[in-house]
């Protein structure tokens, strides 16, 4: 996380209501939070949760119906014309569908960002190769967007967004149109840019995996509300809201075949562990100490901001007494333990 505590963006009681065919739809409902300078802040939620709408209030592509948005403690909500355009040059944005100008080359697309705000040709000629190098696209300088792969298109999008040296980068589902491998490389690029330039990055995604890979903090959004907001590790390891719990479960995807779930004489347990516990040999110790049989059926360890967080599904067999003892022991050694009765 960014080392300072100064907030660069603060969103206060923001609501956005759309009028559609005489009905009003509340896309964002009374949302407030702050984003710290230099952090990567994630907003996660299903489609239609209002993430995109909320993100767009930061550069006023979407005007809040109620509430205010502050950048560096300045209320920007009323900005118009010249002041709005000036504000926007300080906020880069990238999109799910890249939104490149098809009739311009890679160079032309990046140059357009600078031309749009009245930079001179000399400045443009100096800056464009710099940003193209930053995103690793020097060899594509004169290509047209139609000749590029999805990952390359998003790199052009990033270069364009960075051309005017903004302090803030908004990312609207930046990897949702990309395959897994390209997603990873784009996320790594965003992370490295965040570290190199100290640019405050806000990224929205419907995938917890994306958030987990690069974000420092995350807000979980559903139906226009922010359900919880905390550092990513906390949200992952201790999701409070039911919706967040299911998002996290989907990320781990630990479903078992039915025949294993209902095996006679076995008790199925889900063990959740994190921090230093994850690095100890708890299972081996348990077997040695209690002489029970333990089958490991499923498991996964994730490293979220370098801290391990693991889930293990095991089956125990033995007398009820012994199983209770083992459960007690495991409980003392891990974060959470629960019996698995059905797949969720």
């Amino acid at each position: 996380m960014g080392n300072s505590f100064s907030s660069i963006i603060s969103i206060k009681d923001v609501s956005v209501t759309f009028q559609h065919k005489g009905k009003s739809i509340e896309a964002v409902k009374d949302v407030s939070f702050e984003i710290q300078k230099g952090e990567i802040f994630g907003i996660v939620g299903t489609s239609g949760a209002g993430k995109s709408t909320l993100l767009r209030t930061i550069n006023l592509l979407q005007l809040p119906t109620q509430g205010k948005v502050f950048i560096h403690q300045n209320d920007i909500t009323g900005f118009e014309g010249e002041s709005l355009r000036k504000l926007r040059t300080n906020i880069g944005m990238i999109f799910q569908q890249f939104n490149l100008i098809h009739s311009k080359t890679v160079y032309g697309n990046v140059a357009f960002a600078m031309k749009a705000v009245g930079r001179s040709k000399d400045e443009i000629d100096k800056r464009v190769p710099e940003v193209l190098e930053l995103v690793g696209l020097t060899h594509r300088t004169n290509s047209l967007p139609t000749k590029l792969s999805g990952g390359e298109k998003q790199r052009v999008g990033i270069a364009r967004a960075l051309a005017n040296n903004p302090e803030i980068l908004l990312c609207d589902e930046p990897t949702s149109a990309l395959d897994l491998e390209t997603t990873t490389s784009i996320l790594e690029l965003l992370k490295s840019i965040n570290i190199k330039l100290g640019i405050t990055t806000i990224i929205i995604s419907h995938e917890m995996n994306v958030i987990k890979k690069i974000c420092d903090r995350v807000a979980v959004m559903s139906n226009g509300f922010i359900l919880e907001l905390d550092d990513v590790f906390t949200v992952f390891s201790n999701p409070k809201h039911e919706f967040t719990q299911s998002l996290v479960r989907h990320t781990f995807d630990l479903a078992l075949p039915e025949r294993l779930l209902h095996r006679e004489g076995y008790k199925t347990l889900k063990i959740i562990y994190s921090g230093e516990f994850a690095e100890e040999s708890i299972i081996a110790d348990t077997i040695e100490k209690y002489g029970v049989k333990i089958n490991i059926l499923h498991g996964k360890i994730e490293y979220i901001t370098d801290r391990p967080y693991g889930i293990l599904i095991i089956q125990l067999s033995g007398s009820d007494e012994k199983i209770n003892e083992v459960e007690g022991y495991l409980k003392s050694k891990t974060l959470k333990i629960e019996e698995v009765i059905e797949n969720v």
Partner: peptide, 27 residues
């Protein structure tokens, strides 16, 4: 012309005049 491209241009701080000249008509 793709509305997303217009939105991206607005997000860059481009004026309407520049959007017409550099984006809408060329596209």
């Amino acid at each position: 012309v793709d509305k997303g491209i217009i939105e991206a241009s607005k997000a860059l701080g481009a004026s309407n005049f520049i959007i017409f000249k550099e984006v809408l008509f060329p596209e």
